[in-house]
Amino acid sequence: MSHEDTPKGAKITFQVDGRACEGFHHESLLGALRRLGFEVPSLCFHEAVSTYGACRLCLVEVQKGRKSRITTSCNFPVTAGLQVRLDTPAVQQNRKIVFQLLLAKAPASPEVRALAAEYGVHSTPYKVSEEAKDNKCILCGLCARVCTEVVGANAIAFSGRGSHKDMVAPYDEAAEACIGCGACVEVCPTHCIGLRETPEIRTIEKWHRDLPLQKCEKCGRPFAPTFQLMTLGKRVGMKLSDFKVCNDCR
C-alpha cells in the first residue's frame, strides 16, 4: 500500500534516532514526538489549533529514502518508514541561531531567555533594535489561532508583513469582537498580552479591550465578562439573564 492510499490516522511505525515508534499517518511529527516523550523545544505549537510553523524551534532532521533534510517537526506529517533524528549537529546549529534571533526580537521575555538557556544559548550577536527592547511578543500567532479556531471570536489578526508584521486588534484600537475570555492570554508562550481585573472591569491590555464583568447574584463575585456570556449564550440559544450565578454557586 502506498502512502497516498493510507487513511489519515492509521497506525504506522516510524523511527526516531533509530528507535521504532508508533504514530498515526499524517499526524504532526512534533505532536507524535511529544506524546512519545521526546523533548523538542517549540513556542508556536499547540495541539488545540492548526500548526503554523512560525518559531522554527522544533527543527529535526528527517529522512525518507535517500534524501535527508532539516525541517520543523510541527508541520511535518508522520508517515510509515520515516526516519527522524533529533539532535544532529545541523539541528543544533540552526536551533542556536533561531534562539539568537528570538533573543534579539523579544529580549524582554523571560520565557524565551529560559528556553534558550536550556539549549545553551545565553546571548545574541544580533542587534536589538530600539523598538524591540521591551518587546516580549515573538509573533507566533497562537493568540489569533486560538481566538479564531477555538473561541470563534476572530477578534485579532496579524497586520503588515515582513519586519512590519504585528499582532493587533483591528486598527490597533479596542478589539470590538473580543469577548474577553482570556484564551489568548492563557495560550501566549511569552505572556505578553496582559489581563487586568477590577471588581467591575476586565482589561485585555494588548487588544485595548475593557469589558464589564457579570456579578454572581448569590456570592457577589464577578465571574465573567458580560459580553462573553452574551456572545457564547447566543450560540446555544441562551440569554444573558440565564447567567445569573457563578459556577461555584450553581
Binding site: G53, V98, L139, R161, G162, H164
Partner: peptide
C-alpha cells in the same frame, strides 16, 4: 517583501 511568518526569514 518577506511575509513575516517565520522567524528565520523575518528576523
Amino acid at each position: 517583501e518577506s511575509c513575516g511568518k517565520c522567524v528565520t526569514c523575518r528576523e
